[in-house]
Design a protein around this nucleic acid. Structure first.
Lengths: 259, 259
DNA sequence: CGTTTTTTTGAGCACTATCAACAAGTGTGG
DNA sequence: CCACACTTGTTGATAGTGCTCAAAAAAACG
């Protein structure tokens, strides 16, 4: 309904690392050949800019294409009738969104930008072309989906069986690891565009309570959050609190910088 | 460690519906051709029987093959150090389990039989053979995975944002719909092999509390559970309590008997 | 600088967990 | 067919985690 949710324009100044983020991920995964790489680059050539808090995909509306995130963070959300919201997944640069929509006539969840984002749209036809003509890419896609399922499973455990402090701590640990793997970390620091309300919607808690939990984690000198940046001060300790085990985070994605 | 968790023997007397369950699902989905169907049948010819409560896949141990459930119900679980357990997914006849294991050296979750089950093992080689030689089957597999992701997302919402009564009600609604689609329903009734402890582990609640919730649902004449059978007495009312929307349950799987 | 978003704080209470004990099933072997 | 063991379901009293509902303070934004 809001036509202006997305604006078609070139990204202002994409950093080299981000442009080939996806190809990078696939490459480390499979060692792409020249043709595969070139096709992938071609598909992701054009870009779309999305402003923070804008919706790229809207729950309940049809969505015929997918998007590859070139830069920025997004979340997929579902809204209940009474207004409460659950964040289903957090998507980082290199992730693909909207695949799930391909098999449903209407999107089951919304996709919202946390930061300014640039994405490459991919039509259903282009996507199916890749599936048909580049079987190895199709396999890689499949593996990415499986990896995402593993993360979802971990979220189920988090939501179902951990109390608030471990629950929040686990989210932070996971994001740290995932961001790190994508080369977004800078010495224990990662960008952290989530508001406390977002954290609450990830963890199934209230904003007010999340605030208290974060204070607690800060008081114990485990983390620091300022200027939309998360610093994990004591990885081992935070991991201990969270009951975190990193084994579900993609192991095959190479060690992109010591994480 | 327990070698006797599985026993290699023929199923006692498989009902026709179950044998071709998988082919059935795929068929409705894509209209398989003769070769595809025959290959699928061939792959799922041999069977393995599993006793109730036995583990087919054990968390932390390597798992090189997958299994297609021909009959019976299973659950995938993750266990925390303190013994608490979260059920991640419920698997019905026709589901494939262990795909996630393919991309990890060790299984991230256990798979436990709720009832006596029969499954067809599929080696990694056979699986990759299907992927390579039957692209349409590969696509179908991919779509099944996406469908499972949609269910996982719904579980996240359930665990994160619904209080106990809607939460349990939602689980029951989902199982009813899913079972119905697989032709397991018999006029508002479905088999219900979950104990209250299992329900608790699905919903992140305590056994004691689940007991009270179920009493409440019975008191309101919404459901009845006896003899391992769930009867939904008032579908609309239960769906209302649950905040259930069926749109995430596979729509493309045909209407297998009015559900 | 005013406006909006985000973070922080307080008091009270509701929902759900805990723990323990008991009842009712279920299955097994004698 | 009964006796026994074990699993599953049920109940009660109590504690505690996390929610509600403001409202204020601080930060971000244009």
């Amino acid at each position: 309904m809001d036509e202006s949710t997305i604006a078609e324009k070139e990204p202002e100044g994409p950093r080299p690392l981000e442009v080939s983020q996806l190809a990078g991920a696939f490459d480390r995964l499979f060692g792409l050949d020249e043709g595969e790489r070139r096709h992938l680059e071609a598909c992701t050539a054009n870009a779309l800019a999305i402003e923070p808090r804008r919706k790229l995909i809207v729950e309940g509306e049809p969505c015929g294409r997918l998007y590859i995130i070139k830069s920025g963070w997004m979340v997929e959300t579902r809204q209940l009738r009474d207004g409460r919201r659950q964040i289903l997944t957090i998507r980082l640069p290199g992730d693909i969104i909207g695949i799930g929509c391909l098999s449903y006539p209407k999107a089951l969840q919304s996709t919202v930008a946390l930061t300014r984002c640039t994405v490459s749209p991919l039509s259903r036809e282009e996507f199916e072309g890749i599936q048909r003509n580049f079987p190895r890419l199709a396999t890689a896609l499949f593996l990415m989906t499986l990896h995402e399922s593993a993360i979802l499973h971990e979220w189920e455990v988090n939501l179902g069986r951990r109390v608030a402090i471990p629950r929040v701590a686990h989210l932070l640990m996971e994001l740290h690891y995932r961001a790190c793997r994508r080369g977004l970390a800078d010495g224990g620091q990662i960008p952290f565009p989530l508001t406390q309300e977002d954290v609450a919607d990830c963890t199934g808690l209230t904003t007010a309570y999340v605030n208290r939990i974060l204070q607690e984690l800060r008081r114990k000198d485990l983390i620091r959050i300022d200027d939309r940046t998360l610093t994990v001060l004591d990885m081992a300790a935070l991991g201990g609190v969270a009951g975190f085990r990193k084994d579900y985070i993609a192991h095959w994605q190479g060690q992109g910088g010591g994480c």
